[in-house]
Simulated assay, not measured.
Amino acid sequence: MKEDLYQLEKSLGDILPKKRYLHSLGVMTTAFSMALVHDADYEKALIAGLLHDCAKYMTGEEMLTECITNGVPVKQVEMLKPDLLHAKLGAFYAKSVYNIEDEEILSAITWHTTGRPDMTLLEKIIFVADYMEPNRTSSVIPNLDNIRKLSFENLDKAVYQILGDTIAYLMESGKLIDETTADTYDFYKRKLCKE
Score class of each variant (00 low, 15 high):
I167W: 12
A91R: 00
V128T: 02
S139P: 10
A55H: 09
L155I: 05
P117S: 07
D83L: 12
S96V: 10
S139R: 11
L150S: 00
A31S: 11
D4S: 15
S138A: 11
I109E: 03
M63S: 10
H23G: 02
E133H: 07
L36C: 11
T65D: 14
S33V: 08
D183P: 09
A45M: 04
D186A: 12
F92L: 06
S107E: 08
H52T: 01
K157M: 07
V97L: 09
H38E: 04
T65V: 15
P134H: 08
L16I: 02
I147C: 01
F187Q: 03
E101F: 08
L150P: 00
K56W: 08
L8Y: 15
Q7V: 12
E101P: 10
A158S: 04
A158V: 00
Q7R: 14
Y169D: 15
K75Y: 15
T180M: 14
A45C: 04
H52Q: 02
H86G: 01
N99V: 06
K157E: 04
L106E: 07
S96K: 12
A55E: 09
N146H: 12
D118H: 12
E9K: 13
Y57S: 05
Q161A: 13
P117Y: 04
V97F: 07
G26W: 00
D186R: 08
T29I: 10
